[in-house]
């Protein structure tokens, strides 16, 4: 299982990376942490790609505050997200999500931008940014644009990012006092992709629920959110089942995943003090 690639180039800056992508004749692939991409290349899922390695662009690494928004560079690694006090304070959901991702050695390389751009429907971060009402920053030949997380995930491994664009940052409204962030998932083994998972943000009595492993893409569970906002816990569980369209595979059927999502949501609601 040896990766077969067309070529490799190391980008010094975002403009440099964009120019390299432009030269790649449509087969350019952005290499960030590589923890999904290189596995896929080794497995022969893709061959002949022109890899644009952006991991050397230091400006894309780390978290900063910009007013009431937290700005997380796309190359911030899972391990850093788990440990960064700024993230723990302003986006505790992400700090809680990072340790759930795979294992130490993966978290030391994998990046949040890579995870979001890859858009694995079973990954934690995509559901988190939905729940956090985050905005994703894309830079391309035509300049910089911002896309709401809700508009970013279009399908299975499919996003609003154009081939010639790079996801550079994630903008997250800072958590306010009283906000609650909870992520719960059910995975067969520690570090496995979850059979089902939910990321929940409560702010001033309103709820946002991001679901992962429960559809062909991360899902913002609008039906369940509305019922929860209205204080209808049973209605919330029923609505959740309609919000999602889980896959069936060798690990679990769609019905099991749907059931599991309901159990997780009920448990999160209990944790947040909802009467059962």
């Amino acid at each position: 299982m040896k990766a077969s690639i067309g070529g490799y180039a190391r980008a010094e800056s975002v403009p440099h990376a964009l120019s390299l992508l432009g030269e790649a004749d449509g087969v350019g692939r952005i290499l960030a942490g590589g923890q999904s991409l290189i596995a896929a290349l080794n497995l022969g899922v893709s061959a002949g790609d022109m890899l644009v390695d952006i991991t050397g662009i230091e400006t894309l690494r780390g978290a900063t505050l910009d007013g009431d928004r937290l700005v997380i560079g796309a190359l911030t690694r899972h391990g850093d997200i788990a440990r960064d006090p700024l993230i723990a304070e302003h986006a505790p959901l992400l700090a809680a999500a990072a340790p759930l991702i795979a294992h130490d050695a993966i978290r030391n390389r994998g990046t949040i931008g890579g995870s979001l751009a890859h858009a694995d429907p079973a990954a934690e971060y995509p559901a988190c940014v939905l729940a956090l009402d985050a905005t994703l920053v894309l830079e391309g030949p035509a300049g910089r644009r911002e896309v709401a997380a809700e508009d970013f995930f279009l399908g299975l491994f499919e996003t609003a990012r154009a081939d010639e664009e790079i996801l550079t940052a994630i903008l997250i409204p800072c958590a306010r006092p009283g906000d609650r962030h909870v992520i719960r998932e059910a995975a067969r083994r520690a570090g496995d992709y979850a059979l089902a998972g939910l990321a929940v943000v409560r702010r001033e009595g309103r709820h946002r629920i991001g679901a992962f492993g429960l559809d062909d893409r991360p899902v913002l569970c609008a039906g369940a959110m509305a019922k929860w906002d209205a204080g209808d816990v049973d209605g919330m569980i029923a609505a959740l089942a309609k919000d999602i369209d889980p896959p069936s595979d060798t690990q679990a059927s769609a019905s099991y995943r749907r059931h599991l999502a309901g159990v997780l949501l009920r448990r999160i609601a209990a944790e947040l003090g909802e009467a059962q």
């Binding site: 059910a186 067969r188 059979l195 690990q251 679990a252 059927s253 019905s255 099991y256 059931h259 599991l260």
Partner: peptide, 15 residues
């Protein structure tokens, strides 16, 4: 004995 098989044995999941 996967979680799903156990819930099916318990009748929690039937379809």
């Amino acid at each position: 004995f996967t979680p799903e098989r156990i819930l099916r044995a318990l009748g929690t999941i039937t379809d």
